[in-house]
Design a protein around this nucleic acid. Structure first.
Length: 254
DNA sequence: ATCGTGTTGAGGTCTCTTTT
DNA sequence: AAAAGAGACCTCAACACGAT
């Protein structure tokens, strides 16, 4: 609003692409119009253009659109340029095997954390969280760890966005967010006790990279029934912290 | 025939560039 | 510097089309 450098049409086209989710992979113009609040003709022209460029595919039978291969092509270079993934992977795999769970690395996208790397224990009790999966910051240990590593002004900005866009979620999880801040400060990690998925308990640890200042955050999630009492707090959390310290040290050598 | 959905056309606004 | 021109974009109304 009032920003003369802001290319509105481009933003709208990208908003159209963001309507597609794993749960709603196929959408028609009308549905996109409702989700974005854009007029039908505008959506019609945007989907037409995005289809021409390969960002959308049109299913003739259903008359609906789905994301096209070009979307993956523009996303992949980001993953490929994150050398921290290669360095972290063996550390993550080792911890995942130790605790029969999964260990993931994520970066922030708006009010979510997006997984950019994920490892799972060999026995495969847990499902492997896919790269590209996103989880809400407020509800997940990996997100609250991220918040704890933000500067006060970054954190305030994010909390304000939550207040506007997801007030009920923020109200429900504000205590856990505050608790997470304290926990990360005092012992290096925070936890989520089935707050995102009821059957999974998780610990989260942030890592602020000195190179570019971007925060990368890690979690370790374990099925609740596999955990001994106090194990998340006394064993897995501290191990996740030392894993991150080891990754930091390994990064320092590069 | 009617409804829901998608497309087309025209008019309007805004901004930038060219002309006077 | 002001006026005119050009282009991009948005949106309303009308039209098209298939499903019920």
């Amino acid at each position: 609003e009032g920003d003369r450098q802001f290319a509105t049409t481009l933003a709208r086209g990208l908003e159209v692409l963001r309507c597609f989710t794993p749960l709603e992979p196929m959408l028609g113009n009308k549905e996109i119009s409702v989700r974005t609040g854009l007029p039908k003709p505008t959506v019609s022209r945007l989907t037409y253009t995005l289809t021409k460029l390969g960002y959308l595919r049109h299913n003739m039978r259903l008359g609906k659109y789905q994301l096209g291969s070009a979307v993956l092509s523009i996303g992949y270079p980001l993953l490929a340029s994150m050398s921290v993934r290669q360095i972290a992977r063996p550390h993550m795999k080792e911890l995942a095997d130790y605790c029969n769970g999964s260990v993931s690395m994520g970066i922030r996208d708006r009010l979510n954390m997006v997984y950019v790397e994920s490892c799972r224990s060999g026995n495969g009790i847990t499902t492997l969280p896919d790269i590209g999966t996103s989880v809400p910051i407020a509800q997940a240990a990996i997100g609250r760890a991220y918040l704890a590593a933000c500067t006060p002004s970054e954190r305030e900005a994010l909390l304000n966005q939550m207040k506007v866009k997801q007030p009920e979620i923020l109200r429900k999880f504000k205590p856990q967010i505050d608790r997470g801040l304290e926990d990360v400060r005092s012992r290096g990690f925070c936890t989520s006790i089935g707050e995102l998925r009821r059957e999974v308990h998780a610990a989260g640890v942030p890592m602020r990279r000195s190179v570019d200042g971007e925060i990368v955050s890690f979690n370790c999630g374990v099925p609740a029934f596999l955990l001994k009492k106090g194990q998340l707090e006394d064993d897995i959390g501290p191990r996740l912290v030392s894993m991150v310290r080891n990754i930091e040290a390994a990064l320092g050598m590069h």
